[in-house]
Amino acid sequence: MSAGGLPRDTAASVAQAVLLEGVSKSFRSGKGSRTEALRDVTLSVPEGKFVTLLGPSGCGKTTLLRIVDGLIAPDIGRVEVYGSAPRPGPDIGLVFQSFRLIPWLTAQANVEFALRSLALSRPDRQAQAHEYLGLVGLTGFAQAYPAELSGGMKQRVALARALACEPRILLMDEPFASIDAQTRELMQVELMRLWARRKSAVLFVTHSVDEAIVLSDQIVLLGPRPGRVVESLDVDLDRPRWAYDTRSDARYVELRRYLSARMRDLVLADPQSEFFQREPTSTETAAPENEPTASGR
């Protein structure tokens, strides 16, 4: 971990939305053998910050999110969400790559399904679901079934479902990975607008370098097999980022070049990757002269 040390004092840990310390997790895979999904992961998400976990496949990103949501427990290590052990519920919103809408319910009913965990009256629940569907631009599709919606619209419904509970932290597991490139960019802007409205903490998982830079305040680079924190960097691009051409900003370009090279190295150094040692690593080809401020926080 080249990242700077995380604050360890308890006073600081209260201001953290998410705090993971020395988290490891392995799964049984086949006969007696175990796959290590995460090894000694330490990271934090400050309140109101957008943190992205960036890493190639096989770095345990999804496992990490499920641990933060409280769906599974780590083998060892400490997990805290707003100072206490996480429990799945309306306080933690989770958005999945595969949308996971209930196919026999309308968009409206899908959002209401999540709201049932809150003590709301039926009219309040309906009103709130309607409001959040409107927020993601789907007022006209409230009575549509998921099969009638496009991929982007499905993810909007899923986003509305997660946001409708007004969670204190939003976890997003490659939410735009199965959406076409055009829609993805628009969805990123949409997400930024929604987030700017009410800045909850966000822990966003992606394997796209561009997506990570465009969205985040901080990027945590994860390495594969076992999943571990490699590096943590701040993204100091001005917000709102939809207001200007972020991608041509010098800092963006620099960060992108650096992260892409790191990502490639991680894949090439991964013995289980099909690209293992297929190419010389970037440290041999391109001199890493202008590394950005990789100091982390």
């Binding site: 799945p88 049932r116 965990s117």
Partner: peptide, 15 residues
């Protein structure tokens, strides 16, 4: 996947 989604929004076993 749907069951996990339901768990994540805080639905109990009955729901």
């Amino acid at each position: 996947e749907l069951i996990e989604m339901a768990r994540s929004v805080g639905a109990g076993k009955g729901r």
